[in-house]
Simulated scan of single mutants.
Amino acid sequence: MRYEVSERIPQDAKSIRETVFVDEQGFHDEFDETDEISLHIVAYDGDAPVGVCRVFPNEGNTWTLGRLAVLKPYRGRHLGAGLVGEAEKTVRSRGADRLTLHAQERVKDFYRSLGYRDMGIHDLDEGCPHMWMDKPLAETVGNKAGDDEEL
């Protein structure tokens, strides 16, 4: 697996997010102003784009991960865990000591398997239950492969 980090959202990232979040999951507000301040990480299997996420700076040394998606034919191969690991490495190299994320509640166990913990803030995003989670990156020495069926 190869990862590319871009300061602007590449077409490959847009295509994957449209397929997973809009076509499969029915979200409407997929692209926003946060895309302009984010780093976009795309996973490639050879030349084929297969997964994506974005990370952006928050308060202090905290960054936020979002829009993690893996195309259906590639799920169950730990690509979601690989993307999270690449995101952690990327933001650590930029001084981050904590990563937060706004997860769909149905995938909380995936993030827990990677060391993320519930921050106790639960809400709805376009009617879908979500929760805020975080992970101190100082504790991270590698990433644990989790199940990414949900992506």
Score class of each variant (00 low, 15 high):
7 E>K: 11
148 D>V: 05
119 M>L: 15
109 D>A: 06
128 C>M: 15
113 S>H: 11
92 R>H: 03
148 D>R: 04
112 R>I: 04
45 D>V: 10
86 E>H: 06
80 G>I: 01
109 D>W: 09
66 G>N: 06
59 E>Q: 14
4 E>I: 12
114 L>E: 11
58 N>C: 10
52 V>H: 07
95 G>R: 12
51 G>M: 10
118 D>P: 08
72 K>C: 00
70 V>S: 02
12 D>M: 06
71 L>F: 05
115 G>A: 06
19 T>C: 10
94 R>L: 15
16 I>M: 06
40 H>M: 05
82 G>C: 08
122 H>C: 03
45 D>T: 02
101 L>K: 02
24 E>A: 04
96 A>G: 07
103 A>F: 02
80 G>D: 03
85 G>Q: 09
135 K>H: 12
115 G>N: 06
91 V>L: 04
32 D>W: 05
114 L>A: 07
117 R>W: 07
119 M>N: 14
46 G>A: 10
11 Q>E: 15
99 L>P: 04
41 I>R: 00
147 D>W: 01
102 H>F: 08
45 D>K: 12
25 Q>C: 04
79 L>W: 12
21 F>Q: 11
113 S>Y: 05
71 L>Y: 04
90 T>V: 11
84 V>K: 00
114 L>V: 03
11 Q>R: 12
129 P>I: 10
77 R>P: 02
133 M>P: 04
87 A>C: 02
104 Q>I: 07
126 E>F: 10
143 N>I: 14
132 W>T: 13
9 I>V: 10
106 R>A: 15
96 A>W: 06
108 K>Q: 15
27 F>L: 13
78 H>L: 04
105 E>R: 13
58 N>P: 00
109 D>L: 10
27 F>E: 06
149 E>H: 13
62 T>S: 11
128 C>H: 14
138 A>Y: 09
47 D>G: 13
95 G>T: 10
54 R>T: 00
46 G>L: 11
72 K>G: 00
21 F>S: 09
73 P>S: 05
137 L>W: 12
83 L>R: 00
84 V>Q: 02
37 I>L: 11
31 F>G: 05
87 A>M: 02
115 G>L: 05
31 F>R: 02
